[in-house]
């Protein structure tokens, strides 16, 4: 998933979903997962598993397609051929990731049209971090390197999950992410070691993006029987805190070595525990932005809606070609 935290919400309906399951089938299903085997679309699965997976994969897909916007902002302004080509390819990949993820979710029985509909009507969520603006070229470089780095931490964890189509999509995605990460790092290195003006741009971007970056992985998970079962089913592969710690461990030293300052005085690695300590992120702000009150929520959805509307005549026309042919869920 592209950012964590808000996916798994236990509710009483979820518990009900679980109550009616055939205990024998459930036991076989759990045994398969315990053996490390993947679940495939045609296999029996608990309703709750299906529901949570659709929700998770769908949100991941939405994050990719919305994530194409803040970076896409800089496509027409990227400085020089190398950057121009790379950024076009990078944003294209993110659209491609959405396509792959929607495909994986479709195997579970929700159509892509419905998912897109739920995105543009505000019914389903996407990663919060894309509700922040990219003021300068350096902001887009921060995203390419560090937001993608955060996403990779998440995605590598999820790639070890239990649902076959999702894992296969993630394998492909992670291979492409390594280009994003290297490209982003390359850009940041050039700015941070460049002219005073470039350094300043980069430092300002770090200042702006650090708080959203800490929010990216979501608040500490509340351990409940609900998350326990999702962990057992290998839907949830790592806690938000684990992901955040892993990210800090891998990337804070790399940011520091470029002479950049991270705007948190309390950020340090505790040598005894090996854990990173930091100022508790402002979770009120996080909630506010998730609930629609971020700097770019309105714009992101409006743009997505506009893209859908402007393309509607194309899809309508082409759909007339396959009248009478029935849509079925893809196979794998």
């Amino acid at each position: 998933m592209y950012g964590g935290g808000q996916v798994f919400e236990p509710s009483s309906t979820n518990n009900d979903l679980l109550k009616d399951e055939d205990p024998k089938k459930l036991a076989e299903f759990e045994a398969r997962i315990a053996r490390g085997e993947k679940i495939e679309p045609k296999d029996w699965m608990p309703k709750l598993y299906r529901k949570q997976l659709i929700r998770m994969i769908e949100q991941h897909g939405h994050s990719e397609i919305i994530g194409a916007l803040p970076e896409g902002t800089w496509i027409t302004r990227a400085p020089g051929f190398k950057r121009k080509l790379a950024l076009m390819a990078k944003v294209q990949d993110e659209v491609g990731h959405a396509q792959l993820l929607y495909g994986a979710a479709e195997t579970l029985g929700k159509s892509r049209e419905q998912m897109i509909q739920d995105l543009i009507t505000g019914k389903s969520k996407y990663s919060n971090i894309f509700n922040y603006p990219t003021f300068t070229w350096a902001d887009s470089c921060f995203i390419s390197w560090l937001v993608d780095a955060g996403a990779i931490v998440n995605q590598l964890a999820n790639a070890r999950g239990s649902y076959g189509p999702y894992c296969r999509a993630l394998d492909r995605i992670c291979a492409e992410e390594s280009f994003h990460l290297k490209y982003g790092h390359h850009c940041v290195i050039h700015l941070a070691t460049g002219t005073p003006k470039q350094r300043e741009m980069m430092q300002e971007a770090v200042n702006r993006w650090w708080a959203p970056m800490m929010h990216f992985f979501g608040p500490s998970d509340k351990i409940s029987t609900h998350t326990e079962i999702l962990t057992k089913w290998k839907v949830k592969m790592a806690t938000n805190d684990e992901c955040r710690q892993q990210f800090l461990d891998m990337y804070v030293p790399k940011i520091w070595e470029l002479g950049l300052t991270i705007p948190d005085e309390n950020l340090k690695r505790n040598e005894q525990t090996g854990e990173w300590e930091f100022t508790e992120p402002d979770w009120e702000e996080f909630k506010r932005v998730i609930n629609g009150d971020g700097p770019c929520n309105k714009e992101r959805l409006a743009v997505r809606r506009t893209a859908e509307e402007r393309g509607a005549w194309v899809r309508r026309a082409l759909a007339s070609k396959t009248k009478g042919e029935e849509y079925v869920a893809p196979m794998a």
């Binding site: 049209e113 419905q114 009507t121 506009t306 759909a319 849509y327 079925v328």
Partner: peptide, 15 residues
């Protein structure tokens, strides 16, 4: 997009 109507007809292609 303050209100975005549910589409009547889905333009879902086949796969």
């Amino acid at each position: 997009g303050a209100s975005f109507p549910e589409q009547g007809e889905k333009d879902q292609f086949i796969t």
